[in-house]
Simulated scan of single mutants.
Amino acid sequence: MPMKAIRIHQPGDASALVLDEIPTLEPGPGEARVKVAFAGLNFIDVYQRSGLYPLPLPAVMGNEGAGVVDAVGEGVTEVQPGQRVAFAMHRGSYAEAVVVPAWKLVPLPETISEAQGAAIMLQGMTAHYLASSTYPLKAGDTCLVHAAAGGVGLLLTQIAKKRGAWVLGTAGSAQKAALARSMGADEVILYREADFEAEVKRLTGGAGVNVIYDAVGRDTFLKGLNVLKPRGYMVLYGASSGPVEPVDPQLLNQKGGLFLTRPSLAHYAANREELLWRSQELFTWVEDGSLQLRVDQTFPLGEAAAAHRYIEGRNTQGKVLLQIR
């Protein structure tokens, strides 16, 4: 039976996203099929669509979603048909159904909607590993969160505050700055109006920050090295402004024995135990109200191109979803 899916047949701009009809796949051993209700949009989708991260073509897009299990393959014990689940780190969510390795599927608590499940998995677990594992923030630390009003930024700011850090953020408009502050950011720098390097030095009395969480990349990376404390951490987890130029490791020595890491969620949710720990902690925080999950815009599946243009325009103030059913 055919199903609708958004695919690319060649890399390109948002117009490369095509609504196709394709066969519905059957789950194999260790797999489950999910009827997708919502798919989450992330910058990795843009990187894959544009060819920055090449895919075998044609490719169904989307790396995050939530819905209901409607079939399971041989040997599956993690989930069962009829169960509401969410997933990330598996491509194919811009479709009416997707087949996913069962170990990657997280059951949704009754209090978490499918829209919330699709909104929190990739960006929420990214924020979780950044603040809890890559550089585990503690009371008294100072961090700089670039794009603090974006999907990851808003969640990361809140988790950083939960862990006792003093949070500086950057944002592109007064409206976005106000949103970041409402989620706990102590100071927000309007990067279009002020030089963030000078502002961070001013706000920290020249001391700098312990860690920078940078999803922007080319436009912010080198300046960021100038505002880290000795032995500080540059955590580069995205490149919305473009990839960073190659770096001579000696530069890290010159700037104070700095640490540089380029993590991704796959490295921090590499098994089911870790996946369940991160996702369930996030669900608990959403349930008790200590983590606010903001859905910014929801587009129909057929308007995936408009949704991509929206996130590429740096318009996001929270999560962007595709609604599939």
Rank of each mutant, 00 (worst) to 15 (best):
R262E: 02
V200L: 01
R181C: 04
A239S: 13
D20Q: 14
Q83R: 11
L130R: 09
F43L: 11
Q317P: 10
P107V: 09
Y191D: 01
G184P: 01
S290A: 02
V216S: 01
L236C: 11
A86K: 05
S132V: 09
F87W: 15
A215F: 11
E187G: 06
P58I: 13
Q10F: 03
K255V: 00
L282Y: 12
Q250F: 14
L55W: 13
Q317K: 15
A198E: 14
N226Q: 13
L130Y: 05
K229Y: 00
A97F: 01
A95N: 02
G40T: 10
E273N: 12
K201E: 02
L105W: 07
K255R: 15
G238K: 04
V188W: 07
K161T: 05
G232Q: 00
Q83K: 08
G224W: 00
T220N: 07
V98Y: 03
Y213S: 00
A160I: 01
V211E: 00
P11S: 07
A178N: 06
L108Q: 04
D13P: 13
A37C: 05
G67E: 00
N253P: 00
V247W: 08
A131P: 01
S50C: 10
G62I: 09
L321V: 04
F299W: 11
A149D: 02
A147E: 03
W166V: 08
F283V: 01
S133N: 12
E199G: 04
Q175N: 09
Q323E: 13
Q83W: 08
A66Q: 02
L168N: 00
I44V: 15
N210Y: 03
S264K: 12
N226H: 12
A66D: 05
G206N: 07
A118S: 05
V79E: 07
L236V: 00
V46E: 06
L55Y: 04
L108T: 03
A305K: 10
A39P: 10
A180V: 03
W103M: 05
A95C: 06
G153M: 05
Y233W: 14
A174W: 09
P54S: 07
A97Y: 05
A174Q: 14
T170S: 09
E245W: 07
E312Y: 09
V72Q: 03
D70G: 04
Q250T: 13
R49C: 03
T204H: 02
F283K: 08
Q292F: 11
A165T: 05
V211A: 11
Q116Y: 02
L203N: 04
L25K: 15
Q317W: 11
G117Y: 04
A95R: 04
A160R: 09
Q254R: 15
L155M: 14
P263M: 07
V244I: 08
A215Q: 11
S93N: 06
K162T: 03
G151Q: 10
N253T: 13
T284G: 13
R91I: 04
L275E: 01
F87D: 03
P109C: 10
Q10P: 09
Y129K: 09
Y310W: 14
L105M: 08
A266E: 09
L154W: 06
L41F: 10
A59F: 08
E274I: 13
E281N: 15
T111I: 10
A177N: 02
A131Q: 09
V60W: 14
M1S: 15
P2W: 12
D219R: 14
I324T: 05
V286D: 02
H128T: 05
D288C: 08
L57R: 11
R294Q: 13
N42H: 14
A180W: 04
E312A: 03
V295S: 02
G28Y: 11
G75V: 09
L252I: 02
A118M: 05
